[in-house]
């Protein structure tokens, strides 16, 4: 259940950014999560519900972009869709050396309500 520590990291980073901007709550958060990042969506959603309680993200809309995996063949350099780390290259049958997409784990953006100073 490393998903919970990932959720706690997300809360910490986004709360810090929101506070720096003078906000008291976050209305929306957008995440990029690679399908090869070892984050299990169901476990993540469960951890999210528990983790955000009492935080600035409690009411926030959660937008999760799950990024499909892409690998570059170590032999012929073909870039191909990678559903699992052991998928062979469709061109030459070699196993990959490099994941080029699908390992993402980042906060793209947060939406806050900023108080207008008059």
């Amino acid at each position: 259940m490393h998903e919970l520590s990932i959720v706690l990291n997300i809360i910490e980073i986004s709360e810090q950014e929101a506070r720096n901007a003078g906000a008291e709550s976050i209305s929306c958060i957008e995440l990029d999560i690679g399908k090869l990042s070892t984050i299990e969506p169901a476990a993540f959603d469960f951890a999210w519900k528990q983790g955000v309680r009492g935080s600035m993200l409690e009411q926030a809309e959660l937008i999760t972009n799950y990024i499909p995996g892409k690998g570059r063949c170590s032999n012929c350099r073909t870039v191909f869709d990678l559903n699992a780390l052991y998928d062979p290259c469709p061109e030459c049958g070699e196993y990959l050396s490099e994941v080029v997409e699908g390992k993402e784990l980042k906060i793209k953006s947060i939406r806050i309500e900023e108080k207008l100073v008059t």
């Binding site: 990932i6 980073i13 901007a21 784990l105 953006s109 939406r111 309500e113 108080k115 100073v117």
Partner: peptide, 26 residues
């Protein structure tokens, strides 16, 4: 944590902050 925004003005505006920040950067 608590901090004051001073003038008690409740006018707010929506603001999008682009972070592009790795969750495990720390």
């Amino acid at each position: 944590h608590s901090h004051s925004h001073g003038n008690g003005n409740n006018d707010v505006q929506d603001k999008l902050i682009n972070l592009e920040k790795d969750v495990l950067y720390e």
